[in-house]
Design a protein around this nucleic acid. Structure first.
Length: 904
RNA sequence: GGGCGCGUAGCUCAGCGGGAGAGCACUACGUUGACAUCGUAGGGGUCACUGGUUCAAUCCCAGUCGCGCCCACCA
């Protein structure tokens, strides 16, 4: 017995547990012999993460593909796992330690801290995987991996050492984006530029040996002047031609700085002269290298000014009172305090030409949002992304990996073709520690282990020397880049790697193309020689109803788990699938989730209907052998729906799959088929009744199969509860076969679809002319041809029932004083006496006439156009002609009907 | 500055060369023992604007306006 209502809260966990117990998630479950593989690696969520709506979308789409292909008999693997998320996790644990007023990480030391993080993870990490289960995700959980687990660490180690030995990883002193709070390098990609109000100060720098002459430079960051080592002007700039090669004197400091000619200086901007601070500005770094200017770093790791014992700063600067005063005033100040002081000092000396208010773009850490990132000169490890990118570009260019939608390929190329060296080291403790050891003289030994490094050192030095390991860890994305093959066991040549790699499809949001997709392409190709995936399906980002980014501070976050609680995972999943076609932002309205919850209810009730009427699944029943037109029709429509759903999912058009299912289940199966079936199921034609029972059950079974990838829970539940043979074998629906249907009876389809049009037309006119809903009215049909007469004869009972008719009789001609509906060649008449509002009918017919008149005028004009006749395809012309003919008939008959009504 | 996306019914969005669609919201009416989480019917749109291509443009092209995103730059 089906319960009165579907209780998703109680049902979903029960069903999920049953799937797990049945081993239904395991790789290869339900695979046909010799089946092709279908592999997806999950975008590993952060251990610190909790399920947000973006995860819900991302994983729902993956699960739809996985369930679909599993049912199609492919050898399916959905590889799950998590990312150790270096910075995020370290921050979470540090914050917790602070809240508990425990000693900080530097106090307890690296080993103890890393232990603490592992402990935190064991206790609080990884909730998100359980949340994915609530969504219904059918990952092979037995294969769960973690970017920091033993196997993956081994992969990371090998990749680092191999790339180093191939000169694709190197150590270099370069400017990087530095987070002075976390004291680590951060990725270019993690820097978010925020526009805030600021100032542009124009400073006057004196020219050496030219009393009273200045060169004016401008800056938004005055404190960096302490590190100035040159001034640049454009080579073609007449104003400064004589100064090129001369020196300027850095105020406050006294450093002599060369004035160089460099294209970087834009004569149009400001004075046309630029101060050059190679150690604190990315452009200046390049200019400095071109002209061999000294690099003077004036900050420590926390971005406090360091002048006093700063050899670079003091090098070549003559001792002076001025310098001493500057050091006294600025040394040790943080960068923002130093900014104010520098401005004040310059002002005192009358060296500020002008100050303008100006909005400036300030780089912020994308994660903490608050910390201002500082370009900072440090030693870091870099990967030669330019070299690695080349084959990755070619793979997409030549179609071996395909982006869906294709438009994202452009973004990918754009970035890959201008790729910068990838800074892969981070000054953190949580992550893969870099396998590099330094000898006493600083020689680097990169090796798979300390023992190996020792041996290399001994070979190098001729004796054993103490080594110290590089304290840095790798960028989290370094290990993520290996995910498609490291999770399958690489570098071991495991059977899984051989079978499931390369993977089939990657499903991810477009904002992660640079971080992840591009890097997986690079690493996958370099280490396996194969593209890590055939397709990359990129979906949009989810926004709230008004299109705003969801954020905790705005309070507009929609928690997917709340939606699951309220409407069920099925409803949420169906909603997410149905909105995937939207552009780059998806706006989620909860009213839609509610609508699809109602859809689930609708399906549930259809099943209850079937149960009430004893519609049992009959083994071996084939609707192709059905006798009833009605049953042949619904079987045909089922075939058509199955085809639409199949091609839609194959083409990643999830919304089309959803709408095809919605339309079919609600507006064909429930609205019409069930209504048509009612009289048969309660009638006394036993043959028809049995056939219809079987067809109803057959149809429902196909529906739960087709709907399963989108709504796995309710369909699984119903599959078990639908009475009949199939339910008895105990196999879960999720491991059953996807419907491959080919039965189509066009004549049956046309016949029933004609009847639907007829009933809809009668209902519509009834309402228009104000026939009370409950009134049963007599109706006559005149002018019917043989086909129509036959159809009327066959379906009279149904038509009468669904159109609320008292009688349906053939007549020689239209009944006078009646409402008249033109259906093709026939006219349907409803008597006016008593039931029909004659004025309403008159205006209805007049409106109809006006409408059809317009239509005819349009078609006439079109068909009179010789160009159209000459150039349009015959097919199109034929359609227009048929349409004109139809419209003309309608006009004639409507005119006649209006005439028959007489004048008011 | 470069690139991308979006402007279609009150709202959220499909469609994308040959008759303007869905869901929600709205209006009216509820009769049918699967379903009021429902049923039936209905109103509502110069498909942002301007040009062009075409026999034909919501759809293709160019431009304009508006909204949003990404990248770069801003000394």
């Amino acid at each position: 017995m089906l319960e009165k209502t579907h209780d998703s809260t109680a049902t979903e966990p029960r069903i999920y547990a049953a799937w797990e117990a049945a081993g239904a998630f395991r790789a290869g479950a339900a695979a046909r012999d010799g089946a092709e593989t279908f592999t997806i690696v999950i975008p590993p969520p952060n251990v610190t993460g909790s399920l947000h709506i973006g995860h819900a979308l991302n994983n729902t789409l993956q699960d739809i593909l996985i369930r679909f292909e599993r049912m199609r008999g492919r050898d399916v693997l959905w590889q799950p796992g998590m990312d150790h998320a270096g910075i995020a996790t370290q921050m979470v644990v540090e914050r917790q330690m602070m809240e508990r007023q425990e000693p900080g990480r530097r106090e307890i030391g690296r080993a103890a801290f890393v232990d603490k993080v592992w402990a935190w993870q064991a206790e609080s990490g990884g909730d998100i995987l359980n949340q994915l289960k609530r969504l219904g995700c059918s990952c092979d959980w037995d294969r769960e991996r973690f970017t920091l687990d033993e196997g993956l660490s081994k992969a990371v180690l090998k990749v680092f050492v191999d790339l180093y030995r191939d000169d694709l990883i190197y150590r270099d002193k370069r400017l990087v984006n530095w987070d002075p709070k976390l004291q680590t390098a951060v990725s270019d990609l993690e820097v978010e530029n925020v526009e805030i109000p600021g100032h542009l100060w124009h400073f006057k720098y004196p020219i050496e040996e030219q009393e009273g002459r200045f060169i004016v430079v401008a800056t938004t960051r005055p404190e960096t002047m302490l590190g100035d080592t040159g001034v640049a002007v454009h080579p073609d700039d007449e104003r400064y031609r004589d100064l090129v090669g001369k020196n300027a004197i850095l105020p406050l400091v006294g450093r002599r700085m060369r004035i160089v000619a460099d294209e970087h200086a834009d004569p149009e901007l400001g004075s046309g002269a630029v101060k050059i601070t190679p150690a604190h500005d990315f452009n200046d770094f390049e200019v400095g290298k071109r002209h061999d200017l000294p690099m003077v770093n004036v900050f420590d790791a926390e971005a406090n000014v360091v002048l006093k014992d700063n050899e670079d700063f003091l090098a070549g600067v003559p001792q002076s009172d001025d310098l001493a005063a500057t050091i006294a005033a600025l040394d040790g100040l943080d960068r923002f305090a130093a900014r104010k002081r520098v401005v004040a000092l310059m002002e005192e000396r009358g060296l500020i030409a002008t100050v303008e208010d100006k909005p400036v773009m300030v780089p912020h850490d994308e994660k903490s949002k608050t910390t201002v990132i500082e370009p900072y000169l440090t030693d870091q490890w870099f990967a030669d992304a330019k070299t690695l990118a080349k084959p990755a570009i070619a793979s997409v260019r030549e179609g071996r990996t395909r982006f869906v939608p294709k438009t994202w390929e452009k973004t990918y190329f754009e970035w890959m073709e201008n790729i910068q060296p990838w800074c892969i080291s981070r000054q953190l403790w949580w992550g893969h520690q870099i396998p590099a050891w330094y000898g006493p003289d600083g020689t680097v030994f990169v090796a798979h282990s300390e023992e190996e490094a020792q041996a290399d050192a001994e070979a190098h030095y001729g004796r054993a020397e103490p080594l110290t390991r590089d304290p840095d860890v790798l960028d989290t994305w370094f290990s993520s880049a290996l995910w498609p093959f490291s999770t399958l066991g690489w570098p071991e040549e495991t059977p899984e790697l051989a079978r499931y790699y390369p993977t089939t499809t990657l499903v991810t949001a477009f904002d992660i193309i640079f971080f992840w997709v591009a890097r997986m392409m690079m690493m996958g190709l370099h280490f396996t020689g194969k593209e890590p995936f055939r397709d990359v399906y990129l979906h949009a980002l989810v926004r709230d109803e008004t299109g705003a980014k969801m954020s905790k501070s705005k309070g507009n976050v929609i928690d997917p788990l709340d939606l699951v609680d309220q409407y069920g995972a099925d409803a949420l999943r169906f909603t997410l699938a149905s909105i995937t076609a939207q552009g780059r932002d998806i706006k989620l309205a909860t009213s839609r989730v509610e609508g699809y919850r109602n859809f689930a209810t609708k399906l549930w009730n259809a099943a209850r209907f079937a149960e009430h009427h004893d519609c049992r699944v009959v083994d071996g029943f084939d609707p192709a052998e059905a006798k009833e037109t009605l049953n042949r029709w619904i079987a045909t429509e089922t075939t058509r729906a199955a085809r639409s759903v199949t091609t839609a999912i194959e083409g990643y058009r999830f919304n089309e799959a959803a709408s095809a299912l919605y339309r079919f289940v609600w507006h064909q199966f429930c609205d019409w088929y069930v209504e048509f079936a009612k009289p048969i199921l309660t009638g006394d034609d036993e043959g028809a009744r049995d056939e219809t029972r079987a067809t109803v059950a057959w149809g429902l079974r196909r529906i739960v199969e087709l709907l399963h990838p989108l709504m796995p829970f309710i369909t699984e539940d119903l599959a078990a509860k639908l009475p009949g043979a199939t339910a008895a074998d105990g196999a879960p629906l999720m491991l059953s076969r996807w419907p491959e249907l080919d039965f189509e009876d066009t004549a049956a389809a046309d016949e029933i679809n004609w009847m639907i049009d007829l009933i809809a037309a009668i209902r519509s006119v009834r309402a228009d002319v104000n026939v009370p809903a409950g009134a049963r009215i007599p109706v006559t049909v005149s002018g019917a041809n043989d086909v129509t007469r036959a159809r009327l004869a066959t379906h009279a009972t149904l038509i009468k029932r669904l159109a609320r008719l008292e009688s349906l009789d053939l007549a020689d001609g239209p009944t006078p004083r009646s409402a008249q509906i033109v259906i093709g060649e026939a006219t349907v008449c409803m008597p006016l006496s008593g039931v029909v509002d004659i004025e309403a009918e008159r205006s209805r017919l007049s409106n109809e006439l006006a409408k059809v008149g317009k239509e005819i005028a349009k078609l006439d004009a079109k068909l009179a156009n010789e160009q159209f006749l000459a150039k349009a395809p015959d097919e199109v012309i034929a359609v227009q002609r048929a349409r004109l003919e139809e419209a003309s008939t309608l006009r004639t008959k409507t005119e006649a009907a209006l005439a028959r009504l007489g004048s008011g």
